[in-house]
Design a protein around this nucleic acid. Structure first.
Length: 735
DNA sequence: TTACATCATTTTTTT
DNA sequence: AATGATGTAA
């Protein structure tokens, strides 16, 4: 490349960047902290910086390690860099911490005593194994809930405390129990040739401690390290960055302390607050110009977040203009709330230039999505739910993968236990217990023990037969796996083991859905086979165990997006609703007790700053959540919004369908409650014979009759059909 | 062993 | 409300 073309290329990289962005992109090396406010073009800076390093600094792509928070973010970044510098970018390491560690560990597993095809356990697998440990140690699962024990062990691992170190710090009876469980749990993981999510980080750090020459190798080869979302790193991740960065010290971290929302997962906000202490020579760049939201939204968000004490001062601004006020609506209950949102969605769609895909609804807990979904279905509003029960956590998917895991790694007793009697093949708990005893006594894995089931004294012939048959089948499948593509192995497994058949015989819609999900899994495998013709079952499983659904929902959609506030991180939408803004819901009751209010507030800040043009808060005076009715005050976050930026409106619940703009009454003032006399009263007078109306599903029509009980008859233009509709529930409004 | 019923418990966020 | 654990009958 000539100097001239190199210069033009560099110039192109800097085009359209503001001053601080440009400084961040071109900073030559050394520690660099970029405090990137929401919507400040952070991803752009990161990708352009990488491109700059490659084209202008002569850094070779494989010398760059870029860490992102999700797999989705990783593949996006890779793509964007590729468009800047070409296919050479593919040799870069762009991934999450967990994926990078898995890649290192797979290479280095033997020195740690693991085999390369070790299995990765997700949270569910971890809890199941912990349950087994508790049972084996005769601990009462009532007093020591597996989930709670898991949480403690996980947090210990995130702080890089192994069982021994943890045992030394024990200061309660509970922790003592955990310590003993931890020890056994870790032994079992090792025996299963398995690592859990937290191990991926911890074992890597361990590897570097015990084998300094391995560390030397990696820290020498990574000349530049970039970490996105640095505010959400935990101690183990922090240590990894410091270890790997200690030679070249070209550590560039990007983050926003105001968006740290994962402390419950071990994220330590001090990692970002203290970066300048860790690297005194660090250059610090603040990105405060926002390119996403209106000034009103930003000012409102700024007001809320300034109530937090522990933060680096930062004030977002924009050149995009004032925009509309933040709208706050108080509703009766969760149903009214959902109908309000649905009604607004319809108005935004019909009366303004927004599409369903422009709109997102955020809530604090997944359970809140149900009412919303029911309502959207009634209104005929297309929606998609992000998160919730995820594809890879569905029972049938885990089952299918468990088969593959056992075929690949017969030592994996957790997956073995999962499938040995799924579908039913007469191997019940008694048999499995006898098998386990035998395996332990003989020092075998469950799979090996099953092959020798005949030697187990207290097994009935039927059980022996079932076990040997199962073991033989698995062995045969392992042969298939060695020669077939992954998709073929999976199909062979699912049909050969009678899994599909068992589902088919259920003859239910649910079972049909499960079969479809499994076919989708086969599709995932096919895609892998295409992408990596030389790939192995091992590699496929490694890849998939770090894969979550978050990864593929990036695609633009024609549906309203429903998700939790946590999932909203990193996204943006023209219109955002934050629902359930009530004390106890958001902020969540648990965080009130645990004094985690600042984190809840950051969550609110994250949610608000996703909005580009319109932002709504809704709260309900009463709500049914988890089967109990509660009466909540409006969220303190609402109170923290300055009056001049908001428009507080309380719709007269049912009447508004007859009104024109969506809201019947305006400016009732903060905290104004609806007259309870109005609540529950249907107001059919709003519709009269001859009125032109619009229905969300059936379209335009005319009222041809008003009946008692809040029912109107409407003839629709589209097909001249006549329908009777409940004014209370029908998505109907005046045209 | 399995299928079914009842009982109890547990409700945040996820790589 | 929904899920999981436990108990009971076949």
């Amino acid at each position: 490349m000539t100097d001239i073309s190199k210069d033009t290329e560099t110039a192109a990289l800097l085009e359209g960047l503001n001053e601080p962005q440009r400084r961040a992109v071109t900073s030559p090396g050394g520690p660099l902290l970029v405090l990137a406010g929401a919507g400040s073009g952070k991803t752009r800076v990161l990708t352009h910086r990488v491109a700059f390093l490659i084209t202008a600094q002569g850094v070779r792509p494989h010398e760059i390690l870029a860490i992102t928070f999700t797999n989705k973010a990783a593949s996006e970044m890779k793509e964007r860099i590729e468009t800047l510098v070409g296919p050479i970018a593919r040799t870069m390491w762009v991934s999450t911490f967990h994926a990078a560690c898995a890649r290192i560990l797979r290479r280095e597993a033997p020195v740690l005593g693991y085999r390369q095809n070790f299995t990765i356990y997700d949270a569910g697998d971890q809890v199941r194994l912990i349950k087994k440990c508790l049972a084996e140690l005769d601990f009462d699962v009532k007093r020591f809930p597996p989930k709670g024990v898991h949480a403690v062990i996980s947090s210990a691992k995130n702080r890089l405390l192994d069982a021994e170190a943890f045992a030394e710090m024990v200061d309660s009876f509970f922790d003592d129990t955990v310590a003993r469980t931890y020890e056994l749990y870790q032994k079992k993981l090792f025996a299963n040739n398995a690592m859990d999510f937290d191990d991926l980080l911890m074992r890597t750090v361990d590897l570097f401690h015990r084998f300094p020459e391995r560390l030397d190798h990696y820290r020498h080869s990574f000349r530049h390290i970039l970490v996105d979302e640095y505010q959400d790193t935990n101690h183990a991740q922090y240590s990894l960055v410091n270890m790997l960065g200690s030679e070249h010290r070209n550590v560039c971290v990007v983050g926003d302390d105001d968006q740290s929302i994962y402390s419950w997962r071990g994220a330590d906000i001090r990692n970002i607050l203290d970066f300048e202490k860790d690297y005194p020579e660090a250059e610090v760049i603040k990105l405060e110009q926002n390119y996403r939201s209106t000034q009103t939204i930003l000012s409102a968000a700024n007001h809320v977040i300034t109530n937090n004490r522990d933060r680096k001062s930062k004030e977002l601004w924009t050149a995009l203009g004032q925009g509309n006020p933040v709208r706050i609506a108080e509703l009766e209950d969760e149903h009214t709330e959902a109908r309000f949102v649905a009604g607004e969605v319809s108005s935004l769609e019909h009366e303004e230039d927004f599409h369903h895909g422009d709109i997102a609804v955020f809530y604090r807990v997944n359970a809140q999505s149900r009412v919303l979904e029911d309502t959207f279905v009634r209104y005929g509003i297309p929606y998609r739910v992000v998160g919730g029960t995820r594809f890879y956590e569905r029972a049938e998917i885990k089952d299918g993968l468990a088969y593959l895991l056992v075929i690949d790694n017969p030592a994996d007793s957790v997956s073995f236990a999962r499938i040995v009697n799924t579908p039913k093949r007469g191997i019940g708990t008694a048999t499995v217990m006898a098998l386990t005893r035998f395996a332990d006594a003989e020092g075998l894995s469950l799979m090996e023990a099953a092959a020798r089931a005949g030697e187990i004294a207290d097994l009935r012939p039927a059980a022996v037969h079932a076990l040997t048959a199962f073991s033989r089948q698995m062995t045969e499948l392992a042969v298939t796996a060695a020669t077939s593509p992954v998709a073929g192995t999976l199909e062979e497994t699912l049909t050969g083991c009678g899994y599909i058949e068992a589902l088919q015989s259920e003859r239910t819609v649910e079972a049909e859905g499960r079969i479809e999900n499994l076919m989708e899994l086969v599709g995932v495998a096919e895609e892998y086979d295409r992408r990596a013709p030389q790939g192995s079952l091992s590699e496929f499983l490694q890849e998939i165990s770090l894969y979550t659904d978050m990864d593929k929902l990036a695609e633009p959609s024609e549906a309203v997006t429903l998700m939790t506030l946590h999932n909203a991180k990193g996204l943006e939408f023209p219109v955002v609703f934050i629902i359930g803004a009530e004390e106890g819901v958001f902020p969540h009751s648990r965080s009130l007790e645990e004094q985690n209010l600042e984190e809840e507030r950051r969550l609110c800040y994250v949610g608000m700053t996703r909005a580009m043009q319109r932002l709504y808060f809704t709260h309900a005076s009463t709500r049914n959540l988890y089967g109990a009715r509660s009466y909540n005050m409006a969220s303190r976050f609402i109170a923290e919004l300055p009056d001049e930026l908001v428009k507080v409106e309380a719709p007269r619940s049912r009447a508004r369908y007859g009104g024109s703009g969506g809201f019947a009454g305006a400016d009732l003032g903060a905290g104004a409650h609806e007259g309870s006399g109005e609540v529950g009263q249907v107001v059919p007078e709003f519709f009269h014979e001859g009125d032109r109306v619009v229905h969300a599903v059936f379209g335009k029509g005319v009222v041809i009759g008003v009946e008692a009980g809040g029912t109107v008859a409407v003839r629709f233009d589209l097909d001249s059909s006549e329908r009777k509709l409940m004014v209370e529930y029908a998505p109907l409004r005046k045209a």
